[in-house]
């Protein structure tokens, strides 16, 4: 089975950990975030006829991209940028993170997940912002850690990109 290192990135409380919690195999508790700053989980995704094992490095949320521990990015084949649909600033921070990651890893496959899709009435990220990003060639997926909406699709989509890369 092919293995790939994948990072989960995003600012505080955007729901990164909640996103993976229900969909991955885990042996470590969430307290690793506050101690080591990263928690590693595993997700096996079926892509066409083969399986691909995503080793998910769920990196602790930071307030700014400067605080990101870049050594955890090393060797990643792709990443998931996570923003909170109800907090517009999280999208801007995600964009800054993306720039920082590109500096370190070059251009590698990634997805932008706009989480908390179950709270669309409270959303502050506008549709045209997402459209603008899509026009730039980004893949933007709306997810909900609460309902599970879009999560499997997101993992599958990233795995597919990695398999093709």
């Amino acid at each position: 089975m092919i293995q790939k290192k994948v990072c989960m990135l995003g600012t505080f409380a955007v729901g990164k950990t909640s996103l993976v919690r229900r969909f991955v195999e885990s042996i470590y508790s969430d307290k690793y975030h506050t101690t080591v700053g990263v928690k590693i989980d595993k997700k096996v995704v079926q892509v066409d006829a083969s399986e691909i094992m995503l080793m998910l490095w769920d990196i602790e949320g930071t307030d700014t991209e400067h605080e990101l521990r870049t050594s955890y990015l090393r060797g990643a084949s792709g990443y998931l940028l996570v923003a909170d649909g109800t907090r517009q600033d999280t999208l801007y921070k995600a964009l800054a993170l993306q720039t920082k990651v590109t500096e370190h890893l070059g251009t590698i496959p990634f997805l932008l997940l706009i989480n908390k899709a179950d709270l669309t009435d409270q959303w502050s990220i506008r549709e045209r912002e997402m459209t603008a990003l899509r026009e730039k060639g980004w893949e933007v997926i709306q997810t909900s850690a609460k309902t599970g909406f879009g999560v499997e699709d997101a993992f599958h989509s990233l795995a597919k990109k990695l398999a093709e890369a």
Partner: peptide
């Protein structure tokens, strides 16, 4: 070294073994 991905894992009989893939990542982390 670069990715923290597990290349190979061996264990002695009766050893208490956790998921080696995740342990390998965490060790690197």
């Amino acid at each position: 070294l670069e990715t923290g991905l597990l290349l190979r894992h061996v264990s002695a009989a009766n050893a208490d073994v956790q998921d080696a893939d995740m342990v390998s990542g965490m060790l690197t982390a």
